[in-house]
Amino acid sequence: MHEWGYLIIQALQNARTPWLDALFKALTWTGNEGFYLVFVPLLYWGVHPRFGFRFFLVFMLTGAVNTLAKLALIQPRPSPARVLHLVEADGFGFPSGHAQNAVVVWGWLAAQSRQPWAYIAAAVMAILVGVSRVYLGVHFPHDVLGGWLLGLLVLLVALRIEAPLQAWLAQRSTTAHLCLALAPLAVLLFTRDTTLVRQTGVLVGTLVGFWGERRTVRLGAPPTAAALLLRFVVGGLGVALLYTVPRALLPAEWWAAALRYALLGLWLAWGAPILFARLERRRGA
């Protein structure tokens, strides 16, 4: 299986051009952490916290499923001795997280609009992101196929359970909500995997933050274009500081990584909305 995969990667890379390199690097960036550091706040602050939070949970679901699948299967990536690695990539190869996330993320957004053009755009995006991983030399074709199939399964499950889960949560007490928000910390008792540590940190921070925000702030959609711009300038500055400063100050330990990402989640879901609400009230006064 790996041998025919190398043949396909080599065939694609033999057709390399500078503009294809740029195109596929841009496409693959939409599956990187940096992209979601921009995109999730875009939905949470710029559309509505409830919509952004729903998206975030689906994104975390597919991320966790992919990480667990990779840890269970332990499949290699293409060797840099045989093909060019045009971007950096670490961890195991199968299934491709970029391909899986592209199906789930863009498919979920398309399902919210229920427009035919949105489904077509989502399919095109998922295909192009998957192809980019092969062209860039960091995944075998079967890694991408596995990512697409697993992503489709996760997407269908997410769309099926989302409404019943929301109804169930609406009936739970405040204490139960807080306990559920902290529950993912149990993952850290069993693993120190770098990706799972980060995922657990940001998940707990965002869950606790959303729990607090809905009870204290209840931020809505930005009332004006100026408010939207203010949210992204102020909120984005906070994200940049929390992403870089603690990394420089804290030790390179698993607990420090979990703490850094938890702080990011808290800022996204609660800290920034508190500040936005105060600034917007002051501007409206």
Rank of each mutant, 00 (worst) to 15 (best):
M1L: 14
I8G: 02
I9M: 02
A11I: 02
Q13Y: 11
Q13C: 02
W19T: 13
V38S: 06
H48Q: 06
F55Y: 11
F56A: 02
T67G: 10
I74G: 04
P76T: 03
R77K: 12
V83M: 07
H85K: 09
P95C: 05
H98Q: 05
A99M: 10
N101G: 15
V103A: 05
W106D: 07
W106Y: 15
A110F: 03
A111Q: 03
Y119T: 08
V124C: 12
V129D: 11
V134Y: 14
Y135Q: 11
F140E: 05
H142R: 09
W148Y: 03
L149W: 05
L150R: 01
G151S: 01
L153N: 03
L153V: 15
L159H: 04
R160N: 01
L169N: 06
T174S: 13
L178C: 08
C179M: 15
L185G: 01
L196E: 05
V197M: 11
G201D: 04
L207C: 12
G209M: 06
T216I: 03
V217H: 05
T224K: 11
A225D: 08
A227K: 02
L228Y: 11
L229N: 04
R231Y: 08
G235A: 00
L237N: 00
A240F: 13
P251I: 13
L266N: 05
L268T: 06
A277C: 03
R283E: 08
G284V: 09
